[in-house]
Design a protein around this nucleic acid. Structure first.
Length: 194
DNA sequence: GTTAAGATCTGCT
DNA sequence: GCAGATCTTAACG
């Protein structure tokens, strides 16, 4: 995936990331999945974004060059993976909320502990970081390079995409900045009626 | 130094 | 459907 892909506003990149592949290589092997759910966090006028109050130690990666990974720790237990977007310095990103498992299923089960259903492997931002062995050490990593990278799929522009409000936030609830592939089994939540 | 809230997940009802 | 676990971050005194 080339550099120009990430330089657009996060609302645009969030949509265009759907259908492409997220790949992770570790010494145990290769894991990959199809991106099916994303959320955009804007550079300005978005009180739900980590960057709404300026640059801090945690969110510094979001103000860096696009195409990097912004990985942060939430709720004392889990990591979330974002893709930095927009021109450098704008402070925006796209949260990867769910993928559809494609390869390396055995390794995902191993990374997640004893999970029974395939639909529980990567159907949420914290879950997919566990399954893909993503943690704070990958914060700032360039997503065009191993061991964590994106691969373009030609099917991406023919998907049926719908938008909903973002999940788990208390401000800017009205903004429909969550992008999902309609009807996919691996979404973090069922589609709401709107 | 202290404190409250948080881009979540799991297990139980 | 709901509460608890768990701990970092950032705001405030």
């Amino acid at each position: 995936m080339d550099r120009d892909f990430f330089g657009f506003r996060s609302e645009v990149v969030a949509r265009s990331l759907l259908g492409h592949l997220l790949c992770r290589e570790t010494k145990e092997g290769l894991v990959s999945g199809i991106i099916i759910e994303t959320e955009a966090y804007l550079s300005s006028n978005d009180s739900a974004s980590h960057t709404s109050r300026g640059i801090t130690k945690r969110n510094a990666t979001m103000f860096g060059p696009p195409g990097r990974a912004y990985v942060y720790f939430v709720y004392g237990n889990y990591y979330c993976l974002n893709v930095v977007t927009g021109p450098e310095g704008s402070g925006e990103a796209v949260l990867i909320r769910a993928v559809e498992p494609l390869s390396g299923l055995d390794l995902m089960y191993q990374n997640r502990g004893y999970i029974k259903k395939t639909t529980d492997l990567t159907s949420g931002p914290g879950k997919l970081c566990l399954a893909f062995a993503i943690d704070h050490k990958l914060d700032g990593h360039d997503l065009r390079k191993k061991p964590l990278y994106l691969v373009e799929q030609s099917i991406s522009d023919r998907l049926e995409v719908i938008t909903t409000p973002r999940i788990g936030i208390s401000s800017a609830k009205e903004k429909k900045l969550r992008f999902i592939i309609r009807g996919n089994k691996y979404l973090s939540r069922r589609e709401s009626l709107d």
